[in-house]
Design a protein around this nucleic acid. Sequence first.
RNA 1: GCGCCAGUAGCUCAGUUGGAUAGAGCAACGGACUUCUAAUCCGUAGGCCGAGGGUUCGAAUCCUUCCUGGCGCACCA
Length: 553
Amino acid sequence: MKDQLRLAIKTALKQCYGDGSLTSGEFPEEVQLEIPKNHDHGDFSTNLAMTLAKPERKAPRQIAEALVAALQGNPLCDKIEIAGTGFINFRLAATCWYEVLDQIMEQGDKYGRSQIGAGTKIQVEFVSANPTGPLHIGHGRGAVVGDAVAAVLQAAGFDVQREYYVNDAGNQILTLGRSILLRLRELQGETIEFPEDGYQAGYVIELAAKYRSEKGDLTDIPEAEAIEICARFGVEEILQWIEADLEIFGIKFDHWYSEKSLYDQGMVTQELAKLKEKGLSFEQDDALWLRTTEFGDDKDRVLIKSDGSYTYFASDVAYHMEKFDRGFDRVIDVWGADHHGYIPRMKAMLAGLGHQPEDLEVLLIQMVNLLRDGKPYIMGKRSGNFITLKEVIDEVGRDACRFFFLMRRCDSQLDFDLELAKQQNSDNPVYYVQYAHARVCSINRNAAEIGLEQPSSSSVDYSRLELIEELALVKQLARFPETVVGAALSYEPHRIVFYLQDLAAQFHSYYNRHRVLVEDPATTQARLFLVNAVRTVLANALQLLGVSAPERM
RNA sequence: GCGCCAGUAGCUCAGUUGGAUAGAGCAACGGACUUCUAAUCCGUAGGCCGAGGGUUCGAAUCCUUCCUGGCGCACCA
């Protein structure tokens, strides 16, 4: 709809240059069309005349008049007006709008999808929590946002892969192994002294107990080896917990990528050699450094420490180089905001290898403040007094939990109130949207009961939809595809949430004011068709968010 | 000290990438169930868009200097 109008404006502009009513020959990259806030200003509005004022050296209104003259008689438009300093306002013919209903019915659960992405290969890497403990609430936000970003990109025609990077190498794994081993010895009757920097939480004892019951005691083995055994066991177990929790949350990864495998397959040395070849790394103070300062970082970074061991950065560099080796055109990382300082060095590394800055997009997820009844719910990982993601999902439910995480843009901090999310009442926005869906389903059940069939587009007389609320609903439905595209290109799934709330509000309002099943059969048919288009779009949008669309509530 | 993110109604937040009179929800107040589901709707009230300066036809949005809050500034991961 929008594109058709845009095209019409472009041809009109061309015509003006042709007949000499405009002279500069200036052509904008894209005609800006927006939906005015004030409905009196029509369906769409363009500022074209204002942007042309300078090159044309004419008053905006004069230019607008020439354009409007060229647009006269266009079948798309009911009314074209010049307003204010030079806006051109368009009111489209109602019949144009009702075509959207046909499209929705025809495309069903595909409505809202597009091919903007043109099959561009994108990888979304998210969660990637260390396998040293269960997922907590902060991971949950990253998980849902990453999943929804991936879903929205898929809907926009990108070829998306979801990946979890498993940090199963490095010191934190040894700490885990050591912690488990100590607890195991404790269970075997030894008195131990648990170190400050060990993992104190109860699940470590669980792991030790599980090891003992499955594999027995661990004695007469060199300490280093015993730690290694415990670490492997712990990582494997914890990964299963994580995968199970994510599954409850409705998140499935296409690929789990092991950091350890990078080392085992020699990828780290291999990729680091490439960097050396390109002269991007250098040796100093017995360590190997990456020259990131040349590409905007404020400090060069160590890859191999002076004791010969690799930094975390080294494997991360190798990992990201390998991502592009795998053929992704673009890579998205979803990180906790506390890692933001890491971005410049990653971008610098990629720039050194000749990548564009936008090839790697890092989405920073701001902190989640967990509240209960408005009061902070203190968490400490070390102290063991933390609430796991699973506990939260169990308490508030998957739909509410996902919806809450998606309600705000991810770069602002989020207050997550357990009591509020749990409430099954009108304070809870997720039910508001779901209820709209359930209501349409209820209408359908009633329609079936009195023997009405679901209308098909050929049987519907759109002229029966003459209420302004009905036209407004249709316009809102028409905006869904562009909302999805916008959410995808900006990586902002919260736009879908706000769209849903708007659509639900319009529907509820309509529902309260007018009946769908009325005396007149033709009107009933038309209204049934309309509300089922609403139902389809609600369901499609909820699907993108991974929230269910219940048939009754 | 340097950097990143935020600052919009009493509270929690949107704001279509620079557009016309800045919008929702909650809380407050007043209304609507003999009706396809009241988990809903209708109405009232609520604003120095953190502050100053700049850019232009036009700024909550862009630039700049401050202020406040959060988070980072490792040969840790």
